[in-house]
């Protein structure tokens, strides 16, 4: 008995010492989990290898389970760089003074959300969202993640703006699928009748032949807004040496490996700034996601 407890005590002290040995000088980055995990891991391991070579430093990607976890890891300085969505980027930069949006995808300047519906609903695609009101009322609807820009913030904004009601009042049931791929699958299967997702995910899945177009179709496309970007902490130069931030930025802008770009999918990366995301901040404040 007594011995057992001595053992357990030893364990607890060992635990404290064993866990502080992780290397501090690895450059770590993460990304919001907006798609299937295997795809993310594949994509960002490629990016890690690329950055490691370009920066001549140890670079590590860590996968997270939620948008908030990505923001928290960035804020807590456990990661120094992140591939954020519009909203998560705004949240992260508010929490980490000095952090900067350094690059975005070419397509991210004018990103879109697609509203999709299961064909069994008989909803006809339209150019004018307001004209769909009667058909959408009392259907079941799913967003992507709670913290997503294209899967939550923008669709919610247009629903409120167009119909004058909160999503819970427009639809009979509102869910959060978790990510864009999942939204697509759920609407395709009919678990939800209507959903909203990132247009890039739709187009890529469509191109790869992964969508049953008899079961699901796009019914409305939102106007364009700025979305994904690479955001880096302001203190990386202190930690990894002068000019590190610029080198990361240059490496991202120079990324031209077609396979890697295709996995995002983006045609390339272009410079970005914090001010580019002002519209997102205002929208988020308007619907109460940001205080």
């Amino acid at each position: 008995m007594a011995l057992d407890h001595i053992r357990k005590f030893l364990v607890s002290s060992l635990l404290m010492t064993a866990t502080v040995t992780a290397s501090a000088e690895t450059f770590v980055f993460t990304a919001i989990p907006d798609e299937d995990e295997t795809k993310l891991v594949e994509r960002f391991r490629g990016v890690a290898d690329y950055l490691s070579e370009e920066l001549d430093a140890e670079v590590r990607y860590i996968p997270v389970k939620s948008y908030a976890a990505a923001v928290s890891a960035f804020r807590n300085n456990q990661v120094q760089l992140a591939w954020f969505g519009g909203l998560s980027g705004v949240q992260a930069r508010r929490l980490v003074p000095g952090s900067e949006a350094i690059a975005q995808g070419v397509e991210d300047e004018a990103f879109e959300t697609y509203f999709i519906a299961n064909t069994s609903t008989g909803i006809e695609p339209a150019d004018d969202f307001a004209s769909l009101e009667d058909q959408l009322r009392d259907k079941t609807f799913t967003f992507g993640s709670k913290g997503s820009t294209s899967g939550r913030l923008m669709p919610e904004f247009y629903i409120r703006d167009t119909f004058g009601d909160a999503p819970e009042d427009v639809f009979s049931r509102v869910g959060f699928s978790g990510n864009h791929t999942r939204t697509l699958r759920l609407v395709e299967a009919g678990t939800y009748q209507v959903g909203a997702l990132n247009f890039q995910v739709w187009q890529k899945e469509l191109g790869d032949g992964n969508i049953d177009t008899d079961a699901v179709e796009v019914i409305w496309k939102t106007p364009a807004y700025p979305d994904y970007q690479w955001t880096i902490r302001g203190d990386v130069d202190e930690r990894f040496g002068d000019g590190f931030k610029d080198r990361v930025k240059q490496a991202l802008l120079n990324l031209d490996d077609p396979a890697l770009l295709e996995s995002f999918p983006r045609s390339g990366f272009i410079p970005a700034s914090n001010d580019d995301y002002e519209p997102i901040r205002k929208t988020a404040e308007e619907i109460g996601i940001l205080d």
Binding site: R7, A18, V20, A22, Q78
Partner: peptide
């Protein structure tokens, strides 16, 4: 006694 060494490194 062994378990603490198999928790993984995690992040500091």
């Amino acid at each position: 006694l062994g378990a603490p060494f198999f928790l993984g490194e995690g992040l500091p």
